[in-house]
Design a protein around this nucleic acid. Structure first.
Lengths: 130, 130
DNA sequence: GGAAGTACTTTCCTCTAGGAAACTATCTCA
DNA sequence: TGAGATAGTTTCCTAGAGGAAAGTACTTCC
């Protein structure tokens, strides 16, 4: 009995710590666009307009705001280049790269999910046919 | 030149597909609470009140709504048990389990992030001291 | 008989995340 | 000289995400 209580308490502590970790992560990756921006940057450095084109649907205000927050948290670096028309390069910092694990898992899951939905639709069609 | 264009186009397609995958995943995991709920359920089946206690800060309305959406998307199963005071058990479905990769990565990142922040605070203190 | 615990639902309200569009400022090219 | 691209900022607005609290319905315990 005592062992069970202890066990329960220990695992419960584990849960709480892990839920807190999830919460910490979500705090950094909040907002509608951060993960997409990070994913886009994971393919290489991008300029403002490139990001806006690549992350479909995002407006200049949001992009600017999200980039600033990512920079504050040390995930992205901002570099102003004194080219003829001034350009700005955004890049994942070394710390930002540590998010690869998360984005990769999300990409893979999303790809498989799309396959699954597609299969379900096919099955539906067959049912309707028969 | 032609090769470069082709290369760029190919990688660009890859980016778009991956960004779409990210978008698909985020569509399923939207809202403030879904990932926390899934993480909580990843430790075992939970009843409504247990979830509400474990996922700190969530209200009954939100919990109910998020669980319904997770159920609709086939990630969570709901089982009504005819115990004396009726209880309901929520559990990750087999498909819900496929999110383990994502939640694990987020947990690990969150834990390391907390460590990093802690270290930075220590350094700060030393600077203040000296 | 009433307090307390299950599992929600409903109502009402607030706040802010996020969008649209216009504006700033600088440079280039025709 | 003015159109177009760079990189934003600012303003104005609203849909809807989410919170607090009360209500519903059933059961069991005291």
């Amino acid at each position: 009995m005592k062992n069970e209580i202890e066990k329960k308490s220990i695992t419960s502590e584990g849960c709480k710590a892990k839920l807190r970790a999830i919460h910490d992560t979500l705090d950094i990756l909040n907002g509608k666009w951060k993960i997409s921006i990070i994913t886009s940057l994971s393919f290489g450095k991008r300029r403002f307009m490139e990001l806006q084109r690549e992350v479909e649907g995002i407006g200049a205000k949001m992009l600017s705001k999200e980039l600033r927050e990512l920079e504050i948290n040390g995930l992205v670096t901002r570099k102003v280049c004194d080219t003829k028309p001034i350009t700005v390069e955004y890049e994942l910092s070394a710390y930002g790269e540590t998010l690869h694990g998360i984005t990769n898992e999300m990409i893979n899951w999303g790809l498989k999910h799309r396959e699954k939905i597609k299969e379900e639709l096919h099955r539906q069609e067959h049912v309707v046919m028969s």
